[in-house]
């Protein structure tokens, strides 16, 4: 006949101590997670060298200074057309100034707004793999080049790599003092008539 096993009282985890330890560890990991950052390494990012051909881009980002940029995209065409229709009687220079003033009022962005625009562009590019975008970044001499790099990094990681980019030197005043800014009707790859904006320097 087997001996009866001695019955021991079942040990239970003390709930209050358990919560104490749990919360201490939780707070500790919370604090350290703010302090610890992923290590950064020196790595290489490639940038295409600019081509010496007539520039063509869907989006132009012109740095004005360290905190503001001038953003031109296809939506601008309708605005320019409207001004051309309403103020067609003005001389070329005055019409250019009029167009430019309107564009300036509506298309100067802070860096935060630029970030938002670039996120929207990235989202659009991810949702439309067939579309290809070319973004031209123009930067004046005195701006630190990491600003340009920030824009490039913001548009680099798209799922279909359908945002291409290029960067060239150039000032906001060069656009302001361009010979002419106007819309032209062109036929796109699908045979559709499109109004594009053209800037003659």
């Amino acid at each position: 006949m087997p001996f009866n096993q001695k019955k021991r009282p079942k040990e239970q985890v003390e709930l209050i101590s358990f919560f104490d330890i749990f919360f201490i560890l939780f707070v500790f990991f919370l604090v350290t997670s703010f302090v610890v950052r992923m290590p950064l390494q020196e790595r290489i990012l490639y940038i295409p060298t600019p081509e010496n051909t007539l520039g063509r881009a869907q989006i132009v980002v012109q740095f004005i200074d360290e905190a503001n940029v001038f953003w031109l995209d296809e939506e601008v065409s309708s605005l320019v057309t409207e001004i051309e229709e309403n103020y067609g009687y003005l001389s070329d220079t005055r019409l250019r100034d009029r167009i430019f003033d309107e564009l300036f009022n509506q298309n100067v962005l802070t860096l935060e707004e630029l970030d938002k625009k670039l996120s929207e562009l990235r989202l659009r590019a991810n949702q439309n793999p067939d579309l290809e975008y070319f973004l031209l970044i123009r930067c004046p001499n005195e701006i630190s080049y990491f600003r340009v790099l920030d824009v490039i990094t913001a548009i680099s990681e798209t799922s279909f790599r359908n945002i291409k980019y290029g960067c060239v030197g150039g000032t906001f005043d060069e656009i302001r003092q361009c010979r002419r800014i106007y819309t032209v009707v062109e036929i796109d790859a699908d045979g559709n008539r499109r109004k594009n904006i053209r800037i003659d320097f």
Partner: peptide, 19 residues
Amino acid sequence: CSSYGDTIPRILLHTLSDK
């Protein structure tokens, strides 16, 4: 670099990045 056309089509920038 671009003055040599496609002979030097890119420059490699050293940056600090995540692996």
